[in-house]
Design a protein around this nucleic acid. Structure first.
Length: 273
DNA sequence: AGAGGGATCTTCT
DNA sequence: GAAGATCCCTCTC
């Protein structure tokens, strides 16, 4: 019976998943104009990548904070060597401004071998290893040394592959991860999408293994929570600045700030659900 | 639900 | 030589 209950809970989770209709809409975007409505059986669908509405260079040419917010709702696509595509909707980001920003790897405008990608053209990936074992993925924005850290995804497609990738990267055998545990953290999403140092300095507008496609963007300011960044300590004024952004009420966010959300509500910004 | 510590290695001082 | 944009496991309440 525990098994049955588990299945039931998974089913209900699927049914309450707000992005399911969105997947249908996105798949339609992949069909050819005037084509039939069952693209999966079409050979053309499989081989045609030009039809994919990839986000282009002009999208990434935004100031850091603006780009960090604009990423919310967009979709990150990772194509594995075997051809499987893993899709995740971006639900949490952080802006690292460079220069004055004391928490940024590029603080003081200092360029090193590691952070070189932060100084490259907007849309360039900056992937670095942290604590010797994990990876984090950023996207370079407009602004000298500025980049946006991708913190959490809402998994949309290829969840089984993500679960396997996440499970494989741990020592002790553990229970199957829930959907919300697959990509809720910067290094977790890198595990789930098989992203490592090899992706550093790649171009999101050109690469064949990773890119972005437009998704459903947040309806308005009331849907985006702006709060402090994670893991940068409490020292200094830069630690207090609201440079982390996430979709309010989304269960795939890694760290929720209830206090800030209460303050938003007090100002009349009610969560729209 | 929250606190604490270990893992593990590249990067820069 | 120390720190780090994290995660996971264990212990305790």
């Amino acid at each position: 019976m525990p098994r049955k209950r588990k299945l039931l809970s998974q089913l209900s989770a699927l049914q309450s998943n707000s992005s399911l209709p969105q997947i249908d809409a996105l798949e339609k975007l992949n069909t050819t104009p005037g084509g039939d409505s069952s693209p999966k059986s079409s050979k053309y669908f499989v081989t045609d990548t030009k039809r994919s509405p990839r986000l282009e260079a002009d999208f990434f040419h935004q100031p850091c904070v603006s780009l960090a917010k604009s990423f919310l709702g967009q979709i990150l696509v990772r194509k594995l060597p075997d051809g499987r595509e893993l899709w995740g909707r971006i639900v949490e980001t952080e802006a690292y401004l460079g220069g004055e920003d004391e928490a940024s790897h590029s603080k003081g405008g200092k360029q090193t071998q590691r952070n070189a990608a932060m100084f490259m053209k907007p849309g360039t990936l900056y992937v670095y290893q942290i604590y010797g074992i994990y990876f984090c993925i950023n996207v370079s924005s407009q602004g000298e040394g500025a980049a946006v850290l991708l913190r959490s995804l809402e998994p949309l497609q290829g969840l089984d592959a993500m679960r396997e990738l996440r499970r494989a990267s741990r020592k002790a055998p553990s229970k199957l991860l829930k959907d919300w545990q697959l990509c809720n953290g910067p290094s977790r999403l890198c595990q789930a999408l098989a992203i490592d140092k090899a992706f550093d300095q790649r171009d999101l507008t050109r690469d064949s293994a990773i890119w972005m496609v437009p998704g459903q963007e947040p309806l308005g300011e009331q849907d985006v929570v702006a709060t402090t960044r994670i893991g940068i300590g409490n020292r200094g004024e830069w630690a207090q600045k609201p440079l982390r952004f996430y979709l309010r009420g989304n269960r795939f966010v890694s760290v929720v700030d209830k206090k800030t959300e209460r303050e938003m509500a007090a100002r009349g910004h009610l969560p729209c659900s």
